[in-house]
Every structure is written in C-alpha cells, then in structure tokens.
Design a protein around this nucleic acid. Structure first.
Length: 222
DNA sequence: GCCCAGGTGGGTA
DNA sequence: TACCCACATGGG
C-alpha cells in the first residue's frame, strides 16, 4: 500500500509539479481561507480575502474589531456569507478570550489537543481543522476532502462511503509522517480532482493515474 | 437556465 | 447511525 500511495503521488507530481500551497501569506490568513473555501471555489475566496485585507481584517485584532454584519458584507463573494462571518467571529473571539489573540500561543498546543480544540469551535469540522493543522501550524496531518474520496474510491482503494477518519488513516498509516509530503499530496489531489476528463476512457493515456482513470466526467453526473 | 465548488451544523427517524 | 437540508456567490 505504501508503494502504491507513493506511486500515485509521484505520477501526480510529475504531471502537475509542485503546487506551493497554502496560497496565504500568514498562518492567520490560512485559517481565514480554510473557512471561506468550505464548499466554495477558491476564485471566490480570493475576492473575499482581498476585501478583508483592504479592511485590515487579516489579523485576529483587525477581524475582531469588525461586527459580524461588517464581516459578512466583506466576505459576500465567497458565498454563505452570513454563516462564514459567524464562523470567523467564533474563531477570533475564542482566540481573543483564551489566548489573548496570540495565534502562536494556541499553536503551542500538541497536535492532538490542538485538533480537538479546533474541532470544538463553531464552523470548524475535520477538513478545516486538518487544513489549519497542516498548512498553518505545520503539523504532519493528512487533509482529506471530497476529491480524495472520489479519486481513491474510484481507484478501488477504499469504499465510496469511507469515513473521513478511515480515509485519513489510509495515508497516515502507510506514508512517512512528513509535512512537505502531506502538503504537496493534498494539493495535488485537489489539482487533479478539478480536471474534467474529455475522453471518458478508463486508463486513457492522458490520465496521470493510468492504472485506472479517476477523472470525474460529465457522464458520471458529477 | 443549470451544475458545481478544497464543508459544516442542525434536525429528524 | 443514517439521511436530509440550509447555507449563497460566481464561473463554465
């Protein structure tokens, strides 16, 4: 299994190259982006982040200074703006009250405790928590998303109904615990998952995972 | 016009 | 546990 997972990684890397994630300038910006991108195209998130930056709200103190209504107006382009404004508010209020707004103090927690802490916050589920752990806190935690489930179930490595935890374990249990590897692997999965297959042929030459075509296609209704 | 995007929380059986 | 559904903008 280890070699199989590494081979898939190498094929993706050979085709797409290094992805350079996360597309954010600071750990706090990564947290904001991780919440804003929930079920949302990144291009829309970029507009919202630009609005927050212009408002000086890409720091815990800057964001805390805004009302939830003001935040909602700024993140409107990212969709679900009322919900996401509440989520961002929950994070900065927690950070302010428990850690004096100091992200470094929160990140001083050990990985397991930090994950539980993040999951206890409104609006942070498994994928968002793990994205923060990996891309903001630099912990060796594998991030699972819808693309991961789709691609690896189609490869026959897990059932389509696999849980988040079990799918994460597939990687955690068989790969070296390496932040750079986990970073690049997840980013490559997202990159590959966005591609729409045009040939619709399993094992087609253009698919970097030619052992089995894993492109989603219109024929699949996806 | 219709489908989809780097999920999560809340409600019901 | 296992489904539902709401949440919402912007691009193809």
């Amino acid at each position: 299994m280890r070699q199989q997972l590494l081979t898939i990684y190498e094929r993706l890397f050979a085709v797409y190259g290094p992805q350079g994630w996360w597309p954010g300038d600071s750990p706090f910006e990564v947290i904001v982006g991780a919440i804003l991108t929930q079920n949302t195209a990144w291009s829309n998130v970029e507009r919202a982040i630009a609005n927050l930056r212009a408002a000086g709200a890409l720091t815990p103190a800057g964001l805390l200074a805004l009302t939830t209504e003001e935040t909602a107006r700024l993140v409107r382009p990212a969709g679900y703006f009322n919900t996401k404004a509440r989520k961002l508010r929950a994070v900065v209020e927690f950070l302010d009250q428990e850690y004096g707004g100091d992200l470094d103090r929160l990140f001083a927690l050990d990985t397991a405790t930090l994950r539980e802490t993040l999951l206890s916050l409104y609006g942070i589920g498994p994928e968002t928590a793990d994205s923060i752990l990996l891309y903001a806190a630099g912990r060796p935690v594998f991030v699972v998303d819808a693309y991961t489930r789709r691609i690896f179930s189609r490869l026959g490595l897990v059932p389509e109904t696999v849980t988040y935890h079990d799918l994460q374990a597939l990687f955690s249990d068989h790969l070296p615990s390496d932040v750079s590897l986990f970073n690049e692997y997840h980013a490559l999965i997202v990159r590959h998952g966005k591609v729409r297959c045009t040939s619709r042929q399993p094992g087609c030459d253009s698919c970097p995972l030619s052992e089995g075509c894993v492109y989603p296609s219109p024929a699949d209704g996806i």
